[in-house]
Design a binder for these strands. Structure first.
Lengths: 214, 214, 214, 214
DNA sequence: GATGAATGAGGTTTCATTCAT
DNA sequence: GATGAATGAAACCTCATTCAT
C-alpha cells in the first residue's frame, strides 16, 4: 500500500533483491567456511556485486554476519508451532508427526548448518545467540516439555526427565547434525535415528518399530 | 640416570619442557579462539617464547594444530576401556558406573572442548579427524554397542536401536557439550543429564532415579 | 575517443598508468639489487603506492619478476631485424652499421642490465629464460650466422666459425657488459671495443680502423 | 717449522681442516645459490658442523663470503704464468698451448663459477672485486697484451686491438661461461669455441683449423 | 672448542575497509 | 547507487646471530 514511490531515486524493490542475494551468498559462505575464512570479496562476487556495494548494505563483516543470521532466524526457517495431538493418539506417533520434520523437511539441512554456525561463532556474537535462543530454541523446548508431560500423564513413560530437561528430546537432532558434518561418508539417516531414538524412549520393540516404519 | 649426555650443547630435557609448554599454550588458544583467530605470536608468548622458537618445534600453524590435537588424543585424555559388568548388575547401573566418567571426570571439560574444536575445524584437518575417530570415538561406540546388546538380551530394553546406532548412547554427551558451550549461564549438570537420559531409556520411574541419585 | 566507459567506477587508464609505474619501479630495483634483495615495499614506494596495491597487479614477487622482465622483452627493447646489406658493401661496414647499435643505442644500457639480470636469476625463472632466448637471442644469432656466411662467401674471412658458432660475434658485447659492470671506473667504450673486435676478425690494419673511426 | 705447538689447547691442525671444510661447503653453496639464498645453517651442515661452530670461524655471512672467495683466489685456482713461446712457434699455436687450459683444465669450471659469482655479488664486496682483479684478471690481461704485441710484430695480425684491449682475447671465455650457465642443455665445448675464435683472429682457413684440431 | 635452542628484525602476503569516480 | 583501485594493519614465516651449557 504505502509502498508506492515517486519515480526518481532508487527502487526499493531492487534494493530488497540485492539484499536478499547478499544474504544468500553470505550465509552460504559462512556455513561452508566459517566467519574468519569468509572473505567479503567472495560474498560480493557470489552476490554478483562489487566489493564496495556490499558495504552499502552492511557496514562491517560482523554486521553482515549478524544481519544474515538473524534475518534467517526471522524468516521461515525456524518457525515451529506444535499443533495439538489427537485425543487418543499415542505420544510416540504424535512426536513422529510433529517433530520429525525438524530433521527431515527440506529446510532441515539449512537448520542444521545454522546450528553448527551458531555453535562455532556464537560466542563472538552474543546478540545472535540470544536471538537464536529465543526464536529457534525456546519454542521447541517448550513443545518438548509439553510432550514429556503428556507422555508421563498417559503412562507412556515413567520418568519426568523430559519435563525437567526437555532438550533431551532434541539430543538425537544435535547428534545427527554433528555426526553427518564430521562423517558425511557414513551419514546417518535423520529420520531413522530419530525414530530409533523414540523407540528407545517409548520402549517399543523392534518388530513394532519396523512395522511402524513401513 | 640412563641420561647419557653427548657432553656438550643444550639439554634435551629443556626441549621436552618447552614442547610441553607450547602444546599447552597452543591447545588453550585453539580451544578458546579456534584455529583462525589463534595467532602464532600469542601461542609463543603464552609459552614464554619468542615467535621464532615456536617454528623450531612446529613448522606451520597447521602443523601446530595437528600436532597438538593428535598428541592430546594419543595422551591420557581419550583412553576408554570398558571393564566388564558384574554378573547380575543391572545395565543401568553398569552404564552409570562405566560411562558416566566420560562426562564427569576431571578431564571431561577438556574432552568436550576437544570435541567442539574438532567439530569446528575437523574439515580442514582430515588426519585429525581420522585420528579422533579411531582413538576417541570408535572404542566408545563399540562399548555402547555391547551395552545395548547386553541390555536387550537381559530384557532391560526392547529395541535393538543401540546396537544399530550406538552413538545414540552418546547423544546426551554431545548435547551437554553444545549446550554448556552456548549457554554457560544456565549450564546443565552433565551427570544429571546423563542419569536422566538413562532413566528414560531404561524406563526408570522418577522415585527410583531420585533414590539412585541419593 | 573509442573509450566507451561503463559509466561508473575507476578509470582503466589510471590502472594502466599504475601498472607502468610498477613495472618501471620493479625493473629498476631488480636491475640494481637483484631479485632477493628487492623488497616489495620498496617497489611499491618507488611506484608511489602502498604495499597492498602492488599485490593487486602481481600476486607474488616471482610473478612481478616474470611479468616485468618478459613484458620488457615483449616491448621495444629487444627487437632486432637485420636489414639487408648493400650489394657491394663490405661486410665489416655492414656489421658496424647493423649490429653496433645493439651496444651503442640509447637502450644499450638497459639491454645490458637485462642480460645481467637474466644471467643472475635466470635459473630460478625458466620461463623468463626461454622468453629471453626466443625473443632476444635467437634473432641476433640468426643474423650473426648470415653475416658469417656472407663474409666467408665473399672471401672476407676464411673460417666458418661464425656459421657454426654465431655467438662468437656477440662475444665482445657480453664482455663489455660484464667489464663495465665490474669496473665502472675504467669502463670500456662499447663502440670502440666492438669496432676493434671486428678489426681483428676482418684483419683490418690499425691505420684503416682509425680512418674508419674518423 | 714454527708450527710446533705446546701440547695443550686446540689443535691447529684440526682447526685448519675444519676451516677448509667450511670453505668448500660455503663456496659450493654460494656458487649454486648465490649469496642471499645461501643459508648459514646449510653451510654448517654441509661442513658437518653445528651452526654456532661456523661463527667461531667467520663472524658474519659477509665475512664468510669474503673469506672464502679471497682464499680461493689466493689458492691454486687462479695462478697464471705465461711461459715464453718458442722462437719460431706461431702465435696461434702458442696461445692454444698457453691459454687454452684456462677454459679446459680441471679447474676451469670452478674458475668460471667463481667469475659468475663475482659478477653477481661483486658490487656488494668491493674488496673481493679488487682481489679478483689483481690476482686473477690482471696477470691474464698482461699476458694477452704481450701475445697481441708478439702476433703483430710477427705480422700474424694487423690490428693493435689486443694491445689496447687485451680483454678481447678473453671474450670467448666470458662468452662460454655465460652461455653454458644459461643453456646447459646445449653447452658449448670451451676448447672448440676458443680454437674457433683464434681461427677467426688469425684468419685460419677451415681446413687448417680442422687439421690443427686433429 | 662445540653445540643447537632461542631470539627478533625483517620480509612476504592477505584482506577488511575507504573513497574518488 | 555502484564500482574497484587503493590502503595499511596484521598475520605468517625465515634466518642471521647469540649464548648458556
Amino acid at each position: 500500500m504505502a509502498e508506492t514511490r515517486r519515480g526518481r531515486g532508487p527502487s526499493p524493490q531492487k534494493t530488497a533483491e540485492t539484499q536478499a542475494r547478499i544474504c544468500e551468498a553470505a550465509l552460504t559462505r559462512f556455513l561452508s567456511e566459517g566467519f574468519e575464512r569468509t572473505r567479503m570479496l567472495d560474498v560480493a562476487r557470489d552476490a554478483g556485486l562489487a566489493k564496495g556495494t556490499l558495504y552499502l548494505y552492511f557496514p562491517t563483516k560482523e554486521a553482515l554476519f549478524e544481519g544474515v543470521v538473524t534475518e534467517m532466524l526471522g524468516g521461515a526457517v525456524e518457525r515451529f508451532d506444535l499443533e495439538p495431538p489427537g485425543e487418543d493418539e499415542p505420544t510416540l506417533d504424535f512426536v513422529l508427526r510433529a517433530m520429525m520434520p525438524l530433521v527431515t523437511d527440506e529446510q532441515a539441512e539449512l537448520r542444521q548448518a545454522l546450528f553448527r554456525l551458531i555453535l562455532s561463532e556464537g560466542q563472538r556474537f552474543p546478540e545472535v545467540l540470544v536471538a537464536y535462543r529465543k526464536v529457534a530454541l525456546d519454542p521447541v523446548l517448550a513443545a518438548a516439555r509439553r510432550i514429556g508431560a503428556r507422555a508421563r500423564s498417559r503412562g507412556e513413560i515413567q520418568s519426568d526427565a523430559l519435563e525437567r530437561l526437555p532438550m533431551l528430546l532434541l539430543a538425537p537432532g544435535v547428534l545427527v547434525t554433528m555426526w553427518n558434518h564430521l562423517f558425511p561418508g557414513e551419514a546417518l539417516e535423520p529420520s531413522d535415528l530419530f525414530r530409533s531414538y523414540l523407540g528407545l524412549l517409548f520402549d517399543e520393540a523392534d518388530s513394532d518399530r519396523r512395522r511402524g516404519q513401513q
